[in-house]
């Protein structure tokens, strides 16, 4: 993956496949440590299956929705000297998290997080997505519920104009709290 935000998109697509109605993404930067968390309330995974999800070669065909996406994400984090963790409970949901060391030469740039969130909303407009970005205590929060409150019943959230607004508003706010630069 050329951008970390593409890994995030890929992991969140698993949450959509798992039947989640709520997907929360958080990015927390503390100096050179970036924590990325993707939490959903989907169907979750069994203990046995959870043990194998980080291994691309033991993933069985019937559980293809996981595939190589998780191993890619884990590798991207561990390459920087960071870490990876996944917790899941059947019937409750899954939390996938990774820590990245941002000054490592192997840190993949975060890239276009606004486009990742816009893409997820287009794919699953009925799901509630939230995004929290915390840059050394400066916080920006986005929630599709707030957008839907403004739009009401008549205008769908996956309308191209609305998605464009969402992508831009996320990227602009991120740019502002990160002191005029992107990661």
């Amino acid at each position: 993956m050329r951008e970390l935000s593409l890994n995030i998109l890929d992991i969140a697509e698993n949450s959509i496949s798992a039947g989640a109605s709520l997907i929360d993404i958080s990015l927390i930067l503390r100096d050179k440590r970036l924590s990325v968390n993707i939490r959903d309330n989907g169907r979750g995974m069994s203990r046995e299956f959870l043990k194998t999800v980080t291994d691309p070669f033991t993933t069985s065909r019937t559980t293809r929705k996981v595939g190589v996406g998780i191993p890619f994400f884990k590798m991207a984090a561990e390459m920087t000297g960071g870490s990876f963790d996944i917790e899941s409970t059947v019937g409750e949901g899954t939390l996938t998290s990774a820590v990245f060391i941002t000054d490592s030469v192997d840190f993949i740039p975060l890239g276009d997080i606004g486009e990742t969130v816009g893409t997820l909303i287009m794919h699953a407009p009925l799901i509630s997505f939230s995004l929290k970005i915390d840059v050394n205590g400066k916080i920006y929060e986005f929630d599709t519920m707030e957008i839907k409150d403004v739009l009401g019943e008549d205008v769908p959230i996956d309308n191209p104009e609305v998605i464009d607004f969402i992508k831009n508003t996320i990227n602009e706010n991120f740019y502002n709290i990160n002191g005029g630069s992107i990661l």
Partner: peptide, 23 residues
């Protein structure tokens, strides 16, 4: 197509380019 293979090959900018043109 927006699975891992599609995303890794550049599907997200492609999808968003379609959206942009439609808009």
């Amino acid at each position: 197509g927006m699975a891992t293979c599609g995303i890794a090959a550049g599907a997200r900018p492609v999808l968003n380019a379609f959206l942009e043109e439609v808009k």
